[in-house]
Amino acid sequence: MENEEKPVMPQAQAIFTLDDDYSLINAFNDGDQAAFTRLVSRHKEKVRNLIYATLGDARNVDDISQEVFIVVYHKLHTFRFQSRFTTWLYRVTINKCRDHLRKVKIRSVFTYLSSDDAEKVTVDSPDNFDIKVVVRDAVNRLPEKLRSPLVLKDFEGCSYEEIAEVLDTEIGTVKSRIFRAREALKKDLEPLKRELL
């Protein structure tokens, strides 16, 4: 009963991807600019969607994803080929998202907007709502440290080990945070359990 279909990354393809990313990186490090563009094309959508899922907000996706790849461009020579490129890339992405969230948090002290926005999220008419939007809002309300592992697992399909590497933490911590994220969502979505769960 555990077998859900996941289109993302079957094992065989993953190995192929690994090799392919590695050769593109090597080519770029040897001065091939086109290799970098190909690397970007392969991963830009994953990065953009990861940012979207992590921030729950499309407004800053473009800026942040551009910034992620600018960092990749300048730092790719430091990549050690000890993990998948995506793990490294996701790490950069999550860090950029965290930077952004930190800034937003500081700014919200001045604008007082964030709390109002949070209020608006509540669903008033059960006939007229999109469950995915409601769940997305609920995910957005999770603290970042619970949200990121959940998104990396369920949205990006990363393994616990990869997530641990992206977030620079232990596998046990990842396991526990994903569990806590799900428990929090269940609790948050309790009023909608008939429609949702």
């Binding site: 859900e4 996941k6 899922a53 469950i131 995915k132 769940v135 997305r136 995910v139 959940l150 998104v151 369920d154 949205f155 399909g157 799900r182 969502l185 269940k186 979505l189 949702l196 769960l197």
Partner: peptide, 9 residues
């Protein structure tokens, strides 16, 4: 169901 919903964002 939660996992599916998040995966299907």
């Amino acid at each position: 169901k939660l996992k599916e919903t998040v995966g299907g964002f």
